[in-house]
């Protein structure tokens, strides 16, 4: 029983990280109507930034995280400006291929700059573990922080979108760019802001991920990126609560499969569940039907 509880908590924690990454996918999809497959690699860049800031520059963890966030925010805005903005009116396949290209570009640049060998990441979290049930359940500091950070991000983001003008502009752009423009909303600026937020979240997710699973290589972002994309689709792509629910469920399913079925098969199980969900509800758990208005 206590081991079940441990697996559950660890699954929720892993899922929290997926959810934070999935938010970036889902917001960019909702507003720019594109799948940014380079999103996972922004995570990796953020992790390297934090790694270098702590290791080489000897900066305190909080400063290292801030630095990673700033670098990734700038990187996200730059990628959008250079790679995606010129394709605003291009067919979605062209945009998709460009996104895959950006992903390889980031991986190869990291390979060139940081080398291929895996680095050992020092956790930024110094919180003691919580021990429950006579030592049967051990919740590490990393596990606790990931869950708490994810909840804070959800609350802040939801409030931002509901209560601020910029947030309302995002919703308007996601529904109808032309009508939003007629209200005086700067659509390009709003898309930039979305990339900025998504990339800042990617940096936070990267640091949390590498703190919990302390290896770092140029390919670190790739698999979590794909899983978070699955989580976003799972929850209903374009939906913010959907990304949260999708992420958490994915983390739980993955961890439970590893624990009770097979650690080799866990990814296959995750994807099988996704396929079943999409067969039953093609728009994902919370997804709404997207009416493609011209």
């Amino acid at each position: 029983m206590s081991s079940f509880f441990s697996y559950l908590i660890n699954g929720i924690s892993l899922g929290s990280i997926y959810a934070i990454i999935a938010l970036g996918y889902t917001m960019v999809y909702g507003i720019a109507k594109m799948l940014n497959f380079a999103h996972g690699d922004v995570i990796m860049v953020g992790s390297y930034m934090a790694f270098l800031a702590m290791g080489s520059l000897g900066l305190p963890p909080v400063v290292a995280v801030l630095l990673a966030v700033v670098v990734c925010t700038i990187l996200g805005i730059t990628i959008e400006k250079i790679a995606y903005k010129p394709l605003r009116k291009a067919p979605s396949l062209a945009v998709l291929i460009t996104a895959i290209g950006v992903s390889y570009f980031l991986q190869n640049t990291a390979l060139l700059v940081f080398g291929a060998n895996t680095k050992m990441f020092t956790s930024v979290i110094k919180l003691p573990p919580v021990i429950l049930g006579d030592g049967g359940v051990n919740i590490s500091g990393e596990t606790q922080v990931a869950i708490v950070v994810c909840i804070i991000i959800m609350i802040v983001l939801t409030t931002f979108i509901k209560k601020t003008k910029a947030g309302q502009a995002m919703l308007a752009v996601s529904e109808d760019k032309g009508a939003a423009e007629l209200m005086g909303v700067n659509v390009n600026g709003t898309i930039s802001l979305t990339f900025a937020i998504g990339s800042a979240l990617a940096a936070i997710a990267g640091v949390l991920l590498c703190s919990a699973y302390p290896t770092l290589s140029p390919y670190t972002g790739s698999m979590p990126g794909i899983k978070a994309f699955v989580a976003a689709v799972f929850g209903g792509i374009g939906s913010i609560p959907g990304a949260f629910i999708g992420g958490i469920l994915l983390g739980i399913i993955e961890n439970m499969s590893k624990a009770y079925i097979s650690s080799q098969l866990s990814d296959a199980i995750v994807f099988t569940v996704l396929i079943i969900v999409l067969l039953v509800k093609p728009t994902g758990i919370l997804g709404k039907k997207i009416n493609e208005k011209v």
Binding site: E175, G178, M183
Partner: peptide, 24 residues
């Protein structure tokens, strides 16, 4: 500009739509 086909923001409330009209 009141566009053809109205193009209100269907998922937002009436008040939120009106406030977006005053965005600038």
């Amino acid at each position: 500009h009141v566009p053809e086909g109205r193009r209100v923001f269907a998922q937002l409330s009436v008040l939120e739509n009106l406030k977006l009209g005053a965005y600038t």
